[in-house]
Design a protein around this nucleic acid. Structure first.
Lengths: 357, 357
DNA sequence: ATAAATTAGTGTAACGTTACACTAACCAGT
DNA sequence: ACTGGTTAGTGTAACGTTACACTAATTTAT
């Protein structure tokens, strides 16, 4: 039961004052003789001394922790994101405090408050609701925010950098790919979350259709029912939505899913209707999580450069905290990439679709 | 820039001393008139006062944070586990500090040290290396540990409760299921991690074979190559291992994978050899992650009651921290359950296997 | 009427660390 | 021999909170 060993014990053992130990600990080692330094180091080693973070933080007001709020680490996409954020943070001497918001603004809020109470000065928001009003007063208290997938809003009163893929382009890429395969009845499959990224993807999808002279059909846009979110149950929702889209009077022959989990759910929905992928229907996902490759058939998807996003967000946040970057609010936009695998194919004219109209 | 608001501001605004505010904050509200209480509460609300955690912790030595160390949240199994732990912790007024060890003991160690520095008094270990010697001196400093999947060891010098499924039984269940389907050449597919759970599963596998009069064949036990771990690349390893097991001179006709990721990798390995699942080969996984259901065919697996494990671990850890439970070291063993889906079938006698011998 | 008990607070040391202001001892230059 | 400068430290207030020991004012009991 060695209990606590404080700086006082170390000082005593090394035969110096606490100030000297503190000086060494804080990089002012030029203020002492090398032998003194060695004696202190030896004492630290011997006693297994670890500085008390709470005391240090209370004094300095600093803590080398950043927050990361994601909808849910149960979602492999965010799990992977969290891992990359942690890696980058660690490399820069920061720890990561991870929080699952379940996409509830009030949880986001209470976590942010909690983190601020722990002296955390910066948070990465893994999923961005369209508004940050619920976090505004916390930013006033010095909290820095970096958002994943969110562009600046006119009403922003604080600097919120953001990093993300060009979601509109991503959806356009996916939709154009399907159009190029001859599909005209292309569905859009998502949940009902009020995220910027979802809005952008929906816009990109519509834009691509119009570009090709196809009028977007509201019936082909499946957005779940309000209040149904999809991190724990994205697969279920995807399955259900795909089932509906493929069962319309004038059914979809292809669909773009908001993420790979929905897409994989859509695989199920197609199977339920005995539709073959990609022979009967084509499916494009988004994110490129690990599972896309092992899906049968492997999923055609839009890849988000997740590691890069995580790195850039983390670095920018740390720069803001340390005030080593103080430019204008910035959105770092990365380019999504279409990865063609086995879930998309040219549309087959098996049945004269004209009959259905 | 409201900046910091401390207990002193609150006291001033309410016209009382800091002691009174502190009394209220710490549940001694019977020591003041209701109107005083209301005045203080109003001041707290008005100023948006949040107690400084660092100061509080420094004073009390307590922090309502527990640590959770898992190999990697990029692994969906641990992502889900983390989520359940967080939920339970939150319900009990604790926050969770999540750490990815990548299965490296030295990272486990440095995280544990770090957490201890932050005043954390308890850690849940999501994956258990056979030994905890690297954490022993930290336990001496008052750190509580609850391990997932680890039985007491003779040399344990501290109390380490553990919660987990009966891994030996789990492997036996899986193996017996395959034996009952007529398989005799059953492979065991895993990485090379030195975890208790893996050892137990291997033992259960061998036991089941011997029970059925089948002599375990070392050639059928694939354990990767030393040093290759498998959280980010479990699928790859599974694919590779399955490929080898199915390509032996006297090949496996079925296999039990250490977890679902390996099993899903094995799907690929089978496909690479144009083997149909379950017609040509049967595969059983373990864990029952979400993806098992959407795999094609849906994976037969051994379900771990993950939520229950997370809940029990978290509750026990908190009890130990608060000293509301002080019994002997305990291992809470839960029962695994076989879930038969579509990846297992009776062995077909297509080719006379006798020829190969 | 007085003593005792209760109510509604207050004062303050302490938690472990840091960083500024300080100093004692020594040395170099004149 | 004295000044000025450097080296190698030290002393201490402060960070925000808590909890114990205390007290002044009021109420109750005798």
């Amino acid at each position: 039961m060695s209990g606590k060993v404080t700086i006082t014990e170390v000082a005593k053992m090394a035969g110096v004052s606490v100030s000297t130990v503190s000086n060494l600990l804080n990089g002012r080692s030029e203020r002492m003789r090398p032998e003194t330094k060695d004696r202190i180091l030896a004492a630290i080693e011997d006693l297994g001394y670890k500085p008390n973070r709470a005391a240090r933080q209370l004094k300095t007001g600093q803590t080398r922790i950043i927050g990361l709020i994601v909808p849910s680490v149960a979602n492999p996409f965010y799990g992977m994101f969290a891992r990359h954020v942690e890696k980058t943070a660690l490399e820069n001497g920061y720890q990561v405090f991870l929080c699952n918001s379940e996409r509830k603004p009030e949880r986001e809020r209470s976590y942010a408050e909690e983190l601020l109470g722990y002296g955390v000065k910066g948070i990465i928001l893994g999923s961005s609701l369209t508004q940050f009003t619920h976090l505004e007063d916390l930013m006033e208290q010095g909290l820095n925010l970096v958002a994943f997938d969110r562009l600046a809003q006119a009403e922003d009163r604080h600097i919120i950098d953001s990093v993300g893929v060009d979601n509109k382009l991503a959806a356009r890429l996916a939709t154009k790919h399907l159009l190029a395969m001859g599909h005209r009845r292309i569905g859009f499959l998502s949940g009902s979350t009020a995220t910027v990224s979802r809005m952008d993807r929906l816009a990109g999808y519509k834009f691509a259709l119009q570009e090709a002279g196809v009028e977007p059909d509201p019936k082909l846009i499946w957005e779940g029912t309000p209040g149904t979110f999809g991190d724990a149950n994205a697969i279920e929702l995807g399955r259900f939505g795909a089932h509906e889209l493929f069962s319309l009077a004038d059914p979809a022959t292809a669909l773009f899913a908001i993420n790979d989990m929905y897409a994989l759910g859509a695989y199920q929905g197609a199977r339920d209707l005995s539709l073959e992928i990609p022979d009967d229907v084509s499916i494009v996902g988004m994110d490129d999580i690990m599972l896309t490759e092992i899906a049968q058939p492997p999923l055609t998807t839009i890849k988000q450069p997740l590691q890069q996003i995580a790195e850039l967000s983390t670095k920018r946040l740390i720069e803001r905290i340390q005030n080593t970057y103080s430019g204008e609010q910035e959105h770092i936009s990365l380019t999504p990439r279409l990865i063609v695998r086995g879930s998309t194919a040219r549309r087959k004219h098996r049945e004269p679709l004209a009959t259905s109209r």
